[in-house]
Simulated scan of single mutants.
Amino acid sequence: MDPRGGHYLNRAAVLSLLGAARMTQLLLGCTIIALVAHSAGYNHAYGIFCMFVWCFCFAMTLVVFTMDVTRLPCCMLVSWDNLTVAYSMLATLMYVTASVVYPVYFLRSRCPEESCEVGGYRIAVTVCSSFGCFAYAVEVFLTRAKPGRVVGYMATLSGMLKVVQAFVACIIFGALANGSEYARHIPAQYCVVVYSLCFSVTVVVMAVTVSGKTSALRFPFDRFVIVYTFLATLLYLSAALVWPIFSFDKKYGTPARPDNCPSENCPWDSKLVVAVFTHVNLVLYFSDLIYSQRIRFITNSTV
């Protein structure tokens, strides 16, 4: 017992739906890492990426779970609720990506060159990773903002969309670095500036929110976020128009995929990925803007 009469350990962190979800995440993460390290394998860049995702999420979930059980978040100088919600959303996205990438590159045939036993391990890894997506999604569902409940900004739909926007931007950066040939045209370079600027500001917004210092700022943070979201929507709209023109128009690029383009590291494929996820982020920023206006309207109407 501590001097204030409470328990040192937080039993609710274990005996709750949230605690059960986190323990399931740890169990699945440990199983995946053991299977991959034992026989499933993670060679090549895509396998290393998937292994990084599983190890990172396992380590972070272990830290979050331990901190909650030992009541240590009360000693931290950050907004713990905002931090855990943002992390659970990020972990869900990372697990979804790994659950798609790993079977695509490691389950191309029923029996790989090594043996059918290795194929069985890889199937088990894919299944466990898919269940891991569900476990993290459950945590997001449990910690999301609900009517009548006071929560941090990252628990709202707008806060969660910020995490998705940053994650999608990382996918765009990966495609840009994979031979997208964006340096050939100045308008394409402008699109890269748009992606970089919006990503940087989004990360800053999340960092300030997680730090819990929004009230100490000398300007209304909520108004800044709404104005930034509006500008980011306009910037992504321009990039969604410019990038396809200078990538797939006959005058500047190639409308169809070249026949002699290699199956891996094809510039046309990278350009297509950038174009698709540019439109995805445009929809995300627009949805964020609409939701932010809805929150503002409700707040004003209740005052």
Score class of each variant (00 low, 15 high):
5 G>E: 15
8 Y>R: 13
9 L>K: 06
10 N>F: 11
11 R>S: 07
13 A>C: 11
17 L>K: 15
17 L>N: 13
17 L>H: 14
21 A>K: 14
25 Q>W: 05
25 Q>R: 09
28 L>P: 07
32 I>K: 03
35 L>H: 07
35 L>W: 09
36 V>C: 08
39 S>G: 12
40 A>I: 09
46 Y>H: 08
46 Y>I: 00
47 G>K: 07
48 I>T: 08
49 F>E: 09
59 A>L: 12
62 L>G: 15
64 V>C: 08
68 D>L: 09
69 V>D: 00
69 V>P: 01
75 C>P: 00
77 L>W: 08
80 W>P: 05
81 D>I: 01
84 T>G: 02
85 V>G: 00
85 V>I: 10
86 A>Q: 02
86 A>L: 09
87 Y>H: 13
87 Y>M: 10
88 S>Q: 11
89 M>P: 00
89 M>G: 08
92 T>L: 13
93 L>W: 04
94 M>V: 03
95 Y>E: 12
95 Y>V: 12
98 A>S: 11
98 A>N: 03
102 Y>M: 04
102 Y>W: 03
104 V>S: 14
107 L>A: 13
111 C>R: 10
112 P>G: 05
115 S>N: 12
115 S>F: 05
118 V>I: 10
129 S>M: 03
132 G>K: 08
138 V>F: 08
140 V>H: 01
147 P>D: 14
149 R>C: 14
152 G>R: 08
153 Y>N: 08
154 M>G: 02
155 A>Y: 03
155 A>N: 14
155 A>P: 02
155 A>W: 04
156 T>D: 05
158 S>T: 14
162 K>V: 05
164 V>A: 11
165 Q>D: 07
166 A>E: 04
169 A>D: 06
172 I>E: 12
172 I>F: 02
174 G>A: 13
175 A>H: 03
176 L>K: 07
179 G>V: 00
184 R>V: 07
184 R>A: 10
189 Q>D: 03
190 Y>W: 12
192 V>H: 03
192 V>D: 02
194 V>S: 05
197 L>N: 00
200 S>N: 00
201 V>R: 07
202 T>A: 13
207 A>V: 11
209 T>P: 06
212 G>N: 07
216 A>S: 15
218 R>E: 10
223 R>G: 00
226 I>F: 12
227 V>I: 15
228 Y>T: 06
228 Y>W: 15
232 A>V: 00
233 T>R: 01
235 L>Q: 02
236 Y>V: 01
236 Y>E: 01
239 A>M: 02
242 V>F: 02
242 V>H: 01
248 F>V: 02
248 F>E: 01
251 K>D: 02
251 K>Y: 03
252 Y>P: 00
255 P>V: 05
258 P>V: 02
258 P>Y: 01
259 D>Y: 06
261 C>K: 06
262 P>S: 03
263 S>R: 07
265 N>I: 02
265 N>K: 12
266 C>S: 04
270 S>L: 01
273 V>N: 07
279 H>Y: 10
280 V>M: 09
284 L>H: 06
287 S>K: 04
289 L>N: 03
291 Y>M: 13
291 Y>V: 14
291 Y>P: 01
293 Q>S: 08
296 R>A: 15
301 S>W: 10
303 V>L: 14
